[in-house]
Each structure stands twice: as structure tokens, then as C-alpha cells.
């Protein structure tokens, strides 16, 4: 009853074919192919005592609606089911929120490229806060190290691994830009990803079919796919979760930065902005004339990445 053990790196496909060739596994695989689509598979099969409740919960989860079509009652029900399932399956006391966006709030982000020193505390905070898969080392945030004379992260080094800051280098962070005119939303065939009224582009993990068309459509590489079963060590799991945010994902679904919806809807800063030691990250309500983000937009020279694509990102870069 623990979270899956960490594997030693991703399994190679050859291994999968070789190591699982015992007869029992073979039969298991065959039966799974045969039973694809059947209720037994949907509910994950029957394993021992006490699983009747689990099966019932999974069954109801399978047939639930897209989050946006749910009534408040249905939202509360699925939250209760998810909390109960986490308890049964992993003995975790998670709290899943379905907190709605607040009135008169539109989130925006600004990134100070003259202050960022590339420490990557934001990346680490994001991984912890959002329960990102440790197996594949998923990161929502990438920091690119650039040489002077460049202002385009695509020409920088996104994999630097050395002591920072480095003389004559500067740093640019990228993540999902929560575009007003987001190509990913247009692409999704099932409306599993959308823009919330407070401007956050979210994914309904349970509704996503994993076609990855949104990923192809995103010009900022803002989306991450769960190629395998994501894993987070049990003691590191953030129990304060949001349905559209950092709740534990499953294999085969898309995920992305949600501006830490579980924090920001409660009036807190996103984990990245909170963690930044240099004060390079400015987050706030674009509709509040007294907010810091509005001050930056008004008084600094700002620019956006790939503006020519007309995606209208809500993420600006600026210099001191």
C-alpha cells in the first residue's frame, strides 16, 4: 500500500519484451487485450478483500462528466471519491479542492531577465508543489542560459549544469504562458483543456484522451505528457491539491503549469514566484490597478515571446 517503488530509470522496451515472458504474465497480457473496454479493466480488476468499495468508486469515476459540465454537487462528489480512493489505494489523506475562480481576477506574470541568476529554486519548488513525476524528471519551468546579444531562449542552453551565476550570461525562464488565444485549447478534440475565467489554462486530467494534439499545437513547449505512470515518493506528496491543479496524475494524460491554481485561488503566490531568491518573478491580478504586475506593465519595457504568432500570452519579460 505504498506509492510505487522508484524504478531505476525508464524501462527499455526490449526489457519489457524480455523480462515479462513468463507464462503467467503472457496470459495476463492476453487477457488484458481481450478484456480491453470491459468493466473489469475499467475498474482495475478485483484484488482481494475490501476492494468492492474501490471498484465502485472507480466505476463511478470512469463515467463522470467533463469538469465544466458538472453541477456543484457532482464536483463535490467526485472530490469525495478522489479523496477516498487516495486513502484506500495509498493511505494518503489528501484534500482536493474544487475552488472556483474569484471575481474580478485575471492572472498575469512578468519575468525580470536582468535579475534572474539561474538558481532554479523556482523549478525545484514547482516540482515539489505540483507533485511532478520524479521518474521522468518532469519540469513545468525551464530556465535557459543565454549569451549577451541574444533575446531568444531557443538559442540558449536549457540543460546547463554548473555553478551560477556565470559572468556574461543571463537567464530566461519559460513555462506555460496561459495565452488568451491559446492554440492548445483550439486543438483539443474533447474540450479537455480550457481557459478559466481567471485566465488559467487548465486540463481536466480525467477527460483527456491523450492524443497530444495540444502538445503539437503549443508554440512554447508548455505541455508535458505522462508517458508512463507518474511517481512521487509518498513522503514528498503535496496533500493540498486542486482538481484542476496538482492532484496526482495518471499515465496517458497531458499536464501543464496551472499558475499553482491550488495556491493562487487562495490569494497566495505560485510556488515559483514564492521561491525565487532574486525577486525576478512578478505575479498578480491584471485587473487590479494597484498590483505589482500592473506597475511592471506600465513602467517597464516589456516584451513577450513569439508575439508574432498572435497567441497573446499573459507572461511578459522585462529588464530593470
Amino acid at each position: 500500500m505504498t506509492v510505487r517503488e522508484k524504478k531505476e530509470g525508464p524501462m527499455k522496451t526490449e526489457d519489457i519484451l524480455d523480462t515479462k515472458s513468463t507464462r503467467r504474465d503472457f496470459m495476463k497480457s492476453l487477457s488484458i487485450t481481450a478484456a480491453a473496454g470491459s468493466a473489469g479493466l475499467v475498474t482495475g480488476g478485483c484484488v482481494g478483500k475490501g476492494s468492492t468499495e474501490e471498484m465502485g468508486l472507480k466505476w463511478e469515476e470512469y463515467f463522470k462528466k467533463n469538469y465544466r459540465l458538472m453541477t456543484q454537487q457532482e464536483k463535490d462528489d467526485t472530490v469525495t471519491r478522489l479523496e477516498r480512493l487516495a486513502k484506500i489505494q495509498h493511505d494518503l489523506d489528501i484534500q482536493v479542492s474544487d475552488q472556483e475562480p474569484r471575481e474580478q481576477v485575471l492572472f498575469g506574470y512578468a519575468f525580470n531577465i536582468s535579475r534572474c541568476k539561474g538558481y532554479m529554486d523556482c523549478v525545484e519548488a514547482c516540482v515539489q508543489e505540483n507533485n511532478l513525476d520524479r521518474n521522468s524528471k518532469t519540469q513545468y519551468i525551464r530556465i535557459f542560459e543565454l549569451n549577451p546579444g541574444q533575446l531568444d531562449p531557443t538559442s540558449g542552453d536549457g540543460k546547463y549544469h554548473h555553478e551560477v551565476p556565470v559572468e556574461d550570461k543571463f537567464y530566461m525562464g519559460v513555462q506555460c504562458f496561459h495565452c488568451e488565444n491559446a492554440p492548445c485549447i483550439k486543438a483539443c478534440p474533447t474540450k479537455a483543456t480550457w481557459r478559466e475565467p481567471d485566465g488559467i489554462v487548465v486540463v481536466d486530467y480525467d477527460w483527456c484522451i491523450g492524443c497530444r494534439y495540444c502538445m503539437a499545437a503549443c508554440p512554447y513547449w508548455g505541455r508535458r505528457f505522462n508517458w508512463g505512470q507518474p511517481e512521487v515518493p509518498k513522503e514528498e506528496i503535496n496533500l493540498k491539491q486542486h482538481y484542476l491543479g496538482n492532484r496526482l496524475r495518471m499515465k496517458g494524460v497531458m499536464e501543464k503549469c496551472t499558475f499553482c491554481i491550488q495556491r493562487t485561488r487562495q490569494g497566495k503566490l505560485p510556488a515559483c514566484a514564492d521561491a525565487c531568491p532574486t525577486g525576478s518573478r512578478v505575479f498578480g491580478n491584471l485587473l487590479d490597478p494597484n498590483s505589482e504586475i500592473r506597475f511592471v506593465l506600465k513602467n517597464k519595457k516589456v516584451f513577450r515571446f513569439k508575439e508574432e504568432l498572435g497567441t497573446d500570452p499573459k507572461f511578459w519579460y522585462f529588464m530593470d
Binding site: 525508464p10 524501462m11 522496451t13 519489457i16 519484451l17 515479462k20 503472457f26 497480457s29 492476453l30 488484458i32 487485450t33 480491453a36 491523450g210 505528457f225 505522462n226 508517458w227 508512463g228 505512470q229 499515465k251 496517458g252
Partner: peptide, 13 residues
């Protein structure tokens, strides 16, 4: 058979 493997492990296969 290969699909049953992919189905179990995910597209990581």
C-alpha cells in the same frame, strides 16, 4: 501482444 504491453506500461513503451 505488443499492444497489451503498451497498454499496461503506457506510451513509455
Amino acid at each position: 501482444f505488443a499492444y497489451s504491453q503498451q497498454f499496461q506500461t503506457g506510451l513509455i513503451a
